[in-house]
């Protein structure tokens, strides 16, 4: 079994009256891409800041690489890379100088540093922009520079706090591919986001957070197993009476029926032949319908069911 890279126990953090973290527990194993999923204000960034000892906390314990984390634990910081939500680079330095500066805080050997900086630029695809100043870079390139500054020193643990906010799809894909590659090279990654698709795409394990609490934790499959929804059947229906909707709701495994803007959404719990039963009913009652498709539950469904609200609320 892999060793725990991060271990958080009973963490409590208050901002005056607001409880940002409420007895929060978490354990992240070596080699994972761990997703912290939650809406804005759920406590993701506060958790990260507590792990990095940027924030003091009221109660609990944070261990990194098996050792209690503190601001003066410089030997622990040596192996951590951080990519903040807000771009943290010097506007007065070029792309190369920025990466060289931040890498230099960790790597003292000049030759090694030079090699690492070049590898980082290659990795994020900024070779052609080496001498550009950050102000001249597009939003996506700037995010890539932000990532390069955080990972150039080849850390064992990389913490990425919403690195793809306001990034174009092309850069987003490049960033996500890069994260997977870093993980393959041996880095443990903590990835926070409120984009469930990203978390679903790259994370090996996910924790769902809301109001400073860890609501659920597991692989995406495990999380989906935790909820009632087995599948959602969607149909285009021009016209349907209320009594038909009531009858559909009484079909086996159907627990929620919604008709909105000529679309019928039928949520079914886990069970067999749900779609066939619905189609039979429509034909028997001669209800005309168009396109039909069934969806497996997403993390948004998981989140909706656990918290009672949409992820992006």
């Amino acid at each position: 079994m892999s060793a725990a890279v991060i271990k958080i126990e009973n963490l409590v953090k208050r901002y005056h009256e607001l409880v940002a973290l409420d007895h929060f527990n978490l354990e992240i194993k070596e080699g994972e891409i761990f997703g912290l999923l939650g809406p804005n204000g759920s406590g993701k960034t506060t958790t990260i800041n507590c792990i990095l000892a940027l924030l003091s906390f009221d109660k609990g314990n944070v261990e990194v690489f098996g050792e209690e984390m503190a601001p003066n634990k410089y030997h622990l910081k040596q192996d951590i890379g951080i990519v903040f939500q807000n771009v943290a680079v010097f506007n007065e330095l070029t792309v190369y100088e920025n990466i060289e500066y931040f890498c230099g805080l960790y790597i003292k050997n000049k030759q090694t540093r030079k090699q690492y900086v070049e590898e980082a630029m290659e990795f994020v695809g900024l070779n052609d922009f080496k001498s550009f100043y950050p102000k001249k870079l597009s939003g996506g390139l700037l995010r890539r520079l932000n990532i390069a500054c955080g990972i150039a020193h080849k850390p064992k643990l990389i913490i990425m706090d919403e690195p793809t906010v306001a990034v174009d799809p092309q850069s987003r894909n490049k960033i996500l591919e890069g994260i997977v590659e870093l993980n393959k090279k041996g880095a443990t990654i903590i990835y926070t986001s409120h984009y469930m698709e990203e978390v679903e795409q790259i994370c090996t394990r996910i924790a769902i957070m809301d109001k400073g609490k860890n609501l659920a934790i597991g692989t995406k499959e495990e999380l989906k197993m935790m909820i009632k929804t087995g599948e959602t059947i969607n149909m285009e229906v021009l016209e349907i009476e209320d009594k038909n909707l009531e009858e559909i709701k009484k079909l086996p495994h159907v627990y929620q029926v919604e008709y909105k803007e000529n679309k019928l959404h039928i949520k079914c719990s886990k069970g067999k032949h749900n779609l066939i039963r619905v189609l039979d009913y429509m034909q028997t009652n001669q209800i005309a319908f168009g396109r039909v498709y069934a969806e497996l539950p997403t993390l948004n469904d998981v989140f909706l069911e656990i918290t009672g609200k949409e992820l992006r609320d």
Binding site: L52, L54, P71, N72, Y74, H75, K77, Q78, I80, I82, F84, N86, V87, A88, V89, F90, F102, L105, Y106, C149, G150
Partner: peptide, 13 residues
């Protein structure tokens, strides 16, 4: 803030 935090996260005292 951003630069300061990144420096604080590094092993630089």
């Amino acid at each position: 803030k951003e630069i300061n935090e990144r420096n604080l996260c590094s092993p630089m005292t």
